[in-house]
Simulated scan of single mutants.
Amino acid sequence: MSLLPNHKSKFDKKLDKFFGVKLDGLDISVINTLADTCPAQLLPILAANFDVDIDKLSESTARELIKNAFEIHYYSGTFYSLNKALKLFYATTNVKEWYEYGGAPYHFKLELEVSKTGINQESLKKTDEIVNTYKNVRSVYDGVSIKIATKANAHAGGYLMHGETISVMPYVLRELETKTGFYHANTFKTHEIINIF
């Protein structure tokens, strides 16, 4: 059955019939275009179709971005889409609007938690690209606050020495005096190295 209108030429109808027969014989069930399971070679093609940039991203991050592309584009121009896109790169992101930090109207800034992923010049450039792609046109980007938490192992030790001497003699005690000494010492040493390139 042809989908071409009746007024089309015989040549068009022959082409339609030829390609219809050829395509009907294809088993398209083996074609996988799901971002989670498709071959890695298809990722750039899927990214182009979903209008997302996966350049210099890891395979897992690229798959997540493609998988969420529809939702990100659907809400494009909102802080929701900006947060959704940034969460693919950073564990915790927070968009602060101008009234939350005392900025000028229509301004916003980002708070990024990078304790697990780390941050470098390239990821900051990627962050700026994401912000400019998904933010509202009228909104002004005031920059980013970076939070890095560190975990330290603390060891504590203690020592207590206590003694008492009692002598019992035939005479009656009029007064009993006890002396106790308590000594406490603490030591704390912190080093922080920050490299800014």
Rank of each mutant, 00 (worst) to 15 (best):
V131G: 00
K10M: 04
F197P: 14
Y141F: 13
I28G: 00
K96L: 15
K189Q: 14
L65I: 15
L46Q: 03
N83M: 00
I146Q: 04
S139L: 01
N136Q: 09
A91T: 13
F70H: 14
A35C: 07
G77D: 05
I45S: 02
T165C: 05
A154K: 15
Q41P: 00
D16K: 04
K13C: 07
S167K: 15
T37C: 03
V52P: 01
S58G: 10
D36Q: 08
A48Y: 06
E175M: 07
I66V: 09
N94K: 13
A152Q: 11
L34D: 11
T165R: 10
R174D: 13
R138A: 05
L15Y: 05
I146Y: 04
L124Q: 13
K151T: 12
G157Q: 07
G143N: 09
G77M: 08
S139H: 10
L160H: 10
L160V: 11
S145E: 14
S60H: 10
L124Y: 04
H191Q: 08
P44N: 08
H191V: 07
E100M: 09
G158N: 12
M161H: 12
I66E: 00
T127P: 02
E192G: 09
F11L: 15
T165P: 02
F188E: 11
A35W: 01
A62I: 04
G143V: 12
Y159D: 08
D142R: 05
K135W: 10
I130C: 02
A156N: 13
Y75G: 00
I130S: 04
K116F: 03
L112T: 04
E113I: 02
K147G: 03
P170S: 10
Y134I: 00
K17L: 07
R174I: 01
I196A: 13
A47K: 01
A152T: 15
K151L: 08
G77Q: 09
L3T: 14
A69Y: 07
P44G: 06
G25E: 12
A85N: 01
A69D: 06
K10F: 03
T178A: 13
F19C: 08
T165N: 10
F89C: 06
E71M: 06
T92M: 09
I28T: 09
T187Y: 15
L173C: 02
A40R: 08
Y106L: 11
A48I: 02
P44V: 06
L86D: 05
Y171L: 11
G103S: 08
E100Q: 15
L42R: 00
V140F: 09
S145L: 14
H73D: 07
I193W: 02
P39T: 04
I193V: 06
D36L: 03
K8R: 12
W98Y: 15
V21W: 04
E113T: 02
S29N: 14
I196H: 14
